[in-house]
Simulated scan of single mutants.
Amino acid sequence: MSVSIREVAERAGVSVGTVSNVLNHRERVTPESVVRVNAAIAELGYVRNDAARQLRAGRSTTVGLVVLDVRNPFFTELARGAESEADRRGLSILLANSDENVAREARYLDLFEQQRVRGILISPYQQVGERLRQMRERGIPAVLVDRRSEDDLFSSVSVDDERGGYLAVRHLLETGRRRILFTGGPIDMRQLDDRRRGARRAVDEVPGASLEILPAHASQVDDGSAAGDEIASRPVAHRPDAVFCANDLVALGVLQSLSGHRIEVPRDIALIGFDDIDFAAAAVVPLSSIRQPARLMGETALRILVEEGDDAQKTAEQVVFEPELVVRASSAR
């Protein structure tokens, strides 16, 4: 059975108001009262009900963050950025992993609404605009992360994925490669579609260059390994001479597979990923990649969310960061 604040007051021999001040405004009470109240709390095992306190105050100190795949270090770094900015503002982050699953994503949004969070940061799997509009009407704002708002009704913090795809493939073409393969999934994800579009634009600029799409169920290391196995099974003349991967996890899987089949990177096949996670530089063959400022994206999204919570009339803000090409050994000439 939970212990009430009244029981703490009785055990400490003080008023309920004194206990409340010890918990929320310690400067208003004497050091002796603080000691007595803390001793009673420890003895009774009292745990404050922050949810009820926040409900009474009308302002939560928690923010819900829904990411596509918590296994991806890109989202880990993004969450760290949001957490750092939240901590600076006296807020806390509740992290949820949708695992690229529409039903799970919806359940987390329902849960966060029930918890009356201060706002939602979300990297959506598919379309969630209508659900987010309902939550905003009930006082819970939302900011999209790692994806731009298609109708500009919600603020968003993203990177120019099409530009990133263009930079990756243009780099491969500049090193002399002409048979480019793109792999990663799921194929209906907006971010990956933009990266493919950028890759296509780069290929179309170079006569004789081609772009093959090798779909994957997801964008994990295993998906990259499967793609590498499929490439290795082909006759040499039908293999690509360069592979652009949806993210670095896929690229690491491709690298692992090709190495196992004694296909050398970059001599036989050049390789480039996306995100520039920490593992990219530490790979057996250091991986070229397109860098996203993940931590800064998280910080920026949290800032915008708080500003919108303080001003419901604030115009939606679309922040788009420029991607950066990072060249390492996996795509050398």
Rank of each mutant, 00 (worst) to 15 (best):
G139R: 14
Y125T: 15
Q127G: 10
V128P: 00
L132K: 11
S156Y: 01
D151H: 04
R170W: 08
I122H: 10
L132P: 09
D151E: 05
E130T: 14
E150L: 09
F154D: 10
P124R: 08
S155Q: 02
R163Y: 01
D152H: 14
R147C: 05
E162N: 05
V159Q: 02
R131T: 03
L167Y: 02
G129N: 15
Y166S: 04
V143P: 02
I140L: 14
G129M: 09
L167S: 01
S123F: 06
Y166Q: 06
V157M: 04
G164N: 05
M135G: 11
D151F: 01
R163F: 04
Q134V: 09
V169T: 07
S156K: 05
G165N: 10
I140E: 12
D146R: 00
Q134H: 13
V143C: 02
D146E: 05
V159C: 04
R147Y: 01
P124D: 06
E137T: 12
R133W: 01
L167G: 01
I122W: 10
V159D: 00
P141C: 11
D161Q: 08
S123M: 05
E150F: 07
L144I: 01
L167T: 00
D146W: 00
I122S: 09
S158M: 03
S158K: 05
V128C: 00
G164M: 02
L144S: 03
Q126Y: 01
V169G: 01
S155H: 06
I140G: 12
D160C: 00
A142H: 06
E150I: 07
A142Y: 05
G129R: 15
D146T: 06
E137I: 09
G129Y: 14
D152S: 13
S149M: 07
A142W: 03
Q126S: 09
A142I: 06
R138K: 15
S149P: 09
E130Y: 07
D160R: 07
S155M: 08
S123R: 06
R163V: 02
A168S: 06
E162W: 06
Q127M: 10
E137M: 11
D161M: 04
S156M: 05
R133D: 10
E130G: 09
V143L: 05
S156P: 00
V157P: 03
D152T: 08
Y125E: 13
D160A: 13
L153M: 13
Q127Y: 12
E150M: 07
V169K: 09
E130M: 11
E130R: 15
P141Q: 12
P141N: 11
P124V: 07
E150W: 06
R170M: 13
V159M: 00
R138I: 13
Q127S: 14
I122E: 08
E162K: 08
F154G: 09
G139K: 14
Y125W: 08
S158W: 03
V159Y: 02
A168G: 04
D161C: 03
A168I: 01
R148W: 00
R170C: 07
L167H: 00
D160N: 15
Y166H: 12
D151L: 02
I140W: 11
V159P: 03
R147K: 10
L153W: 11
L144F: 07
Y166P: 04
E150T: 14
R133Y: 04
R136S: 13
G129E: 15
I122C: 11
E137H: 12
D152N: 14
L132S: 12
